[in-house]
């Protein structure tokens, strides 16, 4: 564990807390893309199938936290605050993302096993999971401050992971091409959002 990775994970946690706080405080999930949240839940569930494998207490607790909160957010959006969710704003076609990521995972993976292909699928899917949310923002043209904070925390998390990989490459000789390429694309998507947002 290094400084970049720990801070990145904490930013990731923070982004989820910000989102939960926004929904609970305003009792509304307006401006939040259910499709993006659904994709994140799929990402966590398919990536953490190795949950029984022990790496560290930190690792296990974080995995449980991410799976639990992502499903809880779906519950809040689809059941508890259902009335505040406007599906007509959330029109991105995620079928294509899911299909393309699955196909890529079947072709480009480290080993052709059930767990490994789904792990790879989750890496590819995470890279593009924010697209429905960005699409929604571009359609409505305006984001609540809190939604911007959410996206900022998520973007910071991704950016810090890039620094973590550079750090690990030099200190541990660590390499993970699949994660690097997907992560670079993911970070680029956020940078694009920040650039547009900053200019406004």
């Amino acid at each position: 564990m290094n400084f970049f990775r720990l801070t990145a994970d904490l930013m990731h946690l923070m982004s989820i807390f910000v989102l939960l706080l926004k929904i609970q405080k305003t009792r509304s999930c307006s401006g939040i893309s259910f499709k993006t949240q659904l994709l994140y839940a799929v990402v966590f569930v398919t990536r953490y199938l190795d949950l029984p494998k022990w790496i560290s207490l930190y690792n296990t607790l974080m995995k449980i936290f991410f799976i639990a909160t992502s499903i809880y957010i779906l519950y809040l959006m689809k059941v508890k605050f259902r009335a505040t969710y406007d599906p007509s704003q959330d029109t991105f076609r995620i079928e294509f993302l899911l299909g393309a990521c699955l196909l890529l995972a079947l072709v480009f993976n480290y080993s052709f096993s059930f767990i490994e292909v789904l792990w790879t699928f989750s890496i590819y899917l995470e890279a593009v999971a924010i697209l429905p949310q960005l699409f929604m923002l571009s359609r409505t043209g305006e984001a609540e401050t809190i939604t911007t904070h959410y996206l900022f925390a998520l973007g910071a998390y991704r950016g810090l992971y890039l620094l973590n990989w550079i750090w690990r490459f030099y200190t541990e000789n660590y390499a993970d091409l699949i994660v690097w390429i997907a992560g670079a694309i993911q970070t680029a998507l956020y940078s694009d959002f920040f650039y547009i947002y900053y200019k406004k």
Partner: peptide
């Protein structure tokens, strides 16, 4: 691609 020994990142 390069195969990491195991997936230890989140």
């Amino acid at each position: 691609p390069t195969k990491p020994s195991f997936h230890d990142e989140l």
